[in-house]
Amino acid sequence: MDLSVFLPLLIVMALTTYLVRALPFTLFRRRITNARVKAFFELIPYTVLSAMTFPAILYATGSFPSACAGFVVALILSFLDKSLLTVAIGTCLATLAATGVLMYIGK
């Protein structure tokens, strides 16, 4: 890609992304005491991750059945309190295995 197009866009992109993180992290430090506001910020991480994961995970592989296999295995391993890495690897392996099965039966 032409540098005269790429560079300005890259700089704006990086700067925006950085400031979105750094401004609140640097400026907002007081401990929140209001119970409801506090509960909101305790919930936000989990609602963000949930909203990002579902339903996007079902379409992440380009094949619905193989993605479902990965999703189900991720749920099971997480319910068993397995570590981050175990769950991530298990999810990939389940997806791979399902893809293999689908290829074998010719879909």
């Binding site: 995970i57 992440a60 990965g70 999703f71 391993l77 999810t91």
Partner: peptide, 20 residues
């Protein structure tokens, strides 16, 4: 099929943070 399977791993990680 290999890159697709790798791409789904990040969601598995998200799930492993939320479920417990």
């Amino acid at each position: 099929f290999l890159t697709n399977a790798l791409a789904v791993g990040i969601y598995g990680m998200f799930i492993s943070i939320v479920i417990p």
